[in-house]
Simulated scan of single mutants.
Amino acid sequence: MELIVLFVGPGGSGKTVMAINLGILMGRMGYNTLLVDGDIYLPDMTEYLDMGAVRVTLHTLLKDPLVEPEAALYKLREYGVSVLPGSKELGQVVGAHTSLLIHVFEELSKEYALTFVDTPSGLPMDLLELYEIATHQVVVLDVERAGRGELPYTIHDQLEKYLFLDREERMEHGVILNNVQKVDPALIEDYIEETFEVPVLGVVPYDPHVPESVSLRRPLIVEFPHSDAAIAIKDAGKVIERWLFG
């Protein structure tokens, strides 16, 4: 069975960094992996991966159903993954028909063991159709953005909204705590797992190497493999592998 994993989270939570690095990690672990830039209006995966200008994108497929989906795939051999990028060209964005999303994803995902989708920041309302076929959802939370007294409320509010999107309750859900500095992650893990019965898949600490890797347009686990955040992401990858495949 092909697995489609949605990476969701508030703006600035680090979901794009997580989707890219975990996708590359899975590729290096031997899983045929596709990374999809599903941010319809502000795609940036090509910049994160320094792919340069790409001609055929997800937006091309959503605008012209006659284009073969495989034409929009780019194999990054250094990283061991394929990428379906998005487009920032206004004409492509305006002309995209999100009603074609399910068709595009069903056609492409069947060629891969894993499809990791980076969604728009906030609630991915433009991708709601994908909840009909996605198998897993990873919610990335930056726990340092809320005040100490507001943290339980913020986590509850955010998680409740993302879990609600799975209206048929057919998906598996997990959480990654990102940019952890001052808060006690064990307390947050206990709260999430007891309140929502959702596993915390990883805890990634604050690490200045993360923004540096973004600036260099290189994946963190490749450019700074021994950094604290990279090690935590690799630990999370082992947990996610068991979560996905048992």
Rank of each mutant, 00 (worst) to 15 (best):
V183A: 15
Q137K: 09
M45P: 12
E223T: 12
L42S: 04
L187F: 08
E193T: 04
L61S: 03
G11Q: 10
I221E: 13
M29Y: 04
L216F: 13
D184C: 02
S87V: 06
G237Q: 10
R167C: 01
A229N: 05
V239G: 00
G246L: 09
L187R: 10
V36L: 06
I192T: 03
G11N: 14
E132V: 02
L34K: 09
E47Y: 12
K88Y: 05
L163W: 09
V222E: 14
M26S: 13
F116E: 09
M29R: 14
A186W: 11
E223F: 12
E150W: 08
A230R: 01
G12L: 10
T46G: 12
N179L: 11
D228V: 00
L159I: 04
L61A: 02
G174S: 04
L35T: 01
S109W: 11
V175S: 01
V54I: 10
D157G: 00
T46S: 15
V83W: 13
Y112Q: 08
F116T: 04
M125Y: 14
V180I: 08
E150I: 00
Y31C: 04
P152C: 10
V104S: 12
G174M: 02
F7H: 02
Q181L: 10
V5N: 07
G86T: 05
A134G: 10
L35D: 14
T60F: 13
N32W: 09
Y48N: 02
T57P: 02
L34N: 06
E160T: 12
L141G: 00
E89Y: 13
I24N: 08
R148Q: 13
V93H: 07
R55T: 12
G202H: 06
V5A: 06
E168W: 08
E107Y: 06
K88S: 11
V210F: 10
I24M: 10
P85D: 08
Y31E: 15
K63V: 00
P211W: 04
V5W: 06
T46Q: 15
E47S: 13
A146Y: 12
V183K: 14
G122I: 00
E129W: 05
T98Y: 05
D235F: 03
Y31Q: 13
R167Q: 15
Q181K: 14
L128C: 09
S13K: 06
H173R: 02
S99H: 07
K15S: 07
D157C: 00
R170S: 15
D157H: 10
R242G: 03
F164V: 02
R145Y: 11
E169Q: 11
T154I: 03
Q158Y: 07
Q92I: 01
I231C: 03
M1N: 10
E144L: 08
R28M: 10
S109K: 04
L159T: 00
F224K: 11
